[in-house]
Design a protein around this nucleic acid. Structure first.
Lengths: 347, 347
DNA sequence: ATGAAAGCGCTAACAC
DNA sequence: GTGTTAGCGCTTTCAT
């Protein structure tokens, strides 16, 4: 270390941290030496001693959905502003991976964590975090128990979407989700959407659950529209999926919104770059990341636990060209006969 | 620590690391105790002692462009596979922020770094990394000096795009970039694109440099097309920008590709979800992140420096509906008179 | 105002 | 096989 100046490490520490007295002269010499030698503190030693790593763990299911990237950007900004760094982990929607990732984050002594988990109401990863008494805050998740979390009210948001779709004149609609079973968000959005339709005395929405990114989406959509030809609009549980639906519809010869209206969820940046512009529930994903990080940082600073309970941020229905009035004739009529896939009758 | 079992920390360390001998019995007792107490090593202590943090720094300009998110995902995967974590930093295209970020990463003792910088040929951040003898690898950057980097050959890729556009029948085209001055990638892409046009004896492409995300894009585009009415196609330096151009064109009443063809660069996931599908240079961004991380991890493991020189990965022109033949009449003819903005004559 | 010393949690070298 | 010791780089009493 910089005992280049001929003084003890303690003095250097005091000078560089302004944490103790030092004569103007030694101070200058230390500063000069540190500058020349390009000295930087080793945060590891500091962290080890202070039991504070100045590091926040962030765990997301994936980076490929821009909504997560955006939240991370927000968390990153908030963290950097407080002199904190982000330790990143991806769990690929896998609960085991979540647990493993949290384990590693804890081993690395993160001071707090921001995360989106598969199942916030029963998560081994969260349990681990709690046992370790590391402050955390969920993002996007909407747990039913009283947990620190920030997001939007998925039920209300989806209800709003449903109402807008009803207002546009649609009477029979479907909900499309990527992993309905595994995601409380998809479930809550379905619930809100259903509630809106029920309020208006419309039939419950059909529910289309697709397995993975778009693979069989086209076929499944064809199948659905054949089974229930009255459907004139789709509500997708996120924007990426909505776009995938739009493409699938286009390939089936169904124009959006002429033959089939589509509404998304999240309001990621590209939604208003595409054509037709995607109608969606715009959510402040970056702000969510920022808020979550701030909450955790506050908890770290004060030593108090993170405020429990869901912090709801405002959402907004953003109209787009992809939601229009239903066409008089049923979309199914426009389906090409020859592309009809093998219909898989449900039990 | 787990001296719950009544033995020394050394023994525990040996057992839990399998790094030394231990009687079957003590081993069992230690394992049991560790399990019950939910003991996890503190990686900070370990890192401090072993001078190995098992952490890689990743520095990108932003997370909002999915191409970076995708590279990070790749790097993350590669790192996780080797038991490494990612320490994330964003620099917002600001060189000072880059330097500061690298400083923090170094203070946190990252074993290596993966980064995209504003100017790879003269970067204070890279200098700092070199001085610290921390292995690093650039992604996306294409430095002219011999630097460890992985990306695509931007000149060749842009030339390919230019050729495809020529093949589609376009004779006069423009290049659109977000920050032409600040990005060697934009410059190289312009170069390759220009070369393709020159080969074919076509006029050099017009160059439209936009300041920030789309704000004045519509006006600038209108301006450009008025000044040079023969332009029938745009090559944008990245996909997001290409989509923004498409929207701007649409607002000006110019259909894509009917009135104006547009080609992007990167091949981010949404390009083939939008309509019309965006023609683009598809690049393996996730693989870039993976390769960069592997290279750095190898260097860390072997102690050898990272292989210098640019590792070029394959790119591919991906046709899309946004590139079509030029229309006989000039697009400018379709421009609405009343929206014509104040024309800013260039010096 | 400054130095010496202890200790954060861990591992490696060396006893025993 | 197991314990002891020292030291990674830092901060923080406590002396001086």
């Amino acid at each position: 270390v910089a005992e280049h100046v001929g003084c003890s490490v303690a003095t250097v520490s005091r000078v560089l941290n302004g944490s103790g007295p030092a004569s103007a002269e030694t101070r200058a010499r230390v500063l000069a030496a540190a500058g020349e030698l390009g000295f930087r503190f080793n945060d590891l030693g500091r962290a080890l001693q202070s039991r504070r790593s100045r590091t926040l763990g962030v765990l997301v299911p994936s980076l490929l959905n821009p909504v997560f990237a955006s939240a991370i950007e927000g968390a990153q900004a908030a963290a950097a502003g407080a002199g904190y760094q982000i330790l990143l982990a991806c769990a690929d929607y896998d609960e085991d991976a979540e647990l493993a990732a949290v384990g590693t984050l804890l081993a690395k002594q993160v001071d707090g964590a921001i995360l989106t988990v598969a199942n916030p109401d029963d998560s081994a990863a969260l349990d681990m975090l709690r046992r370790a008494r590391v402050p955390y805050c969920l993002v996007f998740n909407q747990p039913s128990r009283d947990e620190p979390s920030v997001g939007v009210d998925n039920v209300a948001a989806a209800r709003e979407a449903g109402r807008r779709m009803l207002a546009a004149g649609h009477r029979d609609m479907a909900f499309v989700a990527l992993r309905f079973r595994g995601s409380e968000r998809a479930r809550l959005r379905f619930e809100g959407f259903s509630a809106a339709l029920a309020e208006a005395g419309r039939p419950a929405p059909a529910c289309l659950e697709v397995d993975e990114r778009g693979a069989d989406l086209e076929m499944r959509l064809h199948d659905l529209l054949s089974r229930r030809p009255g459907i004139s609009a789709l509500f997708a549980s996120n924007d990426m999926l909505a776009l995938a639906c739009m493409r699938a519809a286009a390939r089936l010869g169904l124009e959006t919104p002429g033959a089939l209206s589509i509404v998304g969820f999240d309001g990621v940046a590209i939604t208003d770059l595409v054509q037709p512009g995607l109608a969606t529930i715009a959510t402040p994903s970056e702000a969510m990341g920022r808020h979550a990080a701030s909450a955790v940082l506050d908890a770290v600073a004060t030593g108090l636990p993170v405020a429990r309970g869901t912090g709801f941020l405002d959402f907004e229905f953003r109209p787009g060209d992809s939601l229009g009035p239903p066409r008089a004739s049923e979309p199914a009529a426009a389906l090409p006969r020859d592309r009809r896939p093998v219909s898989q009758p449900r039990k």
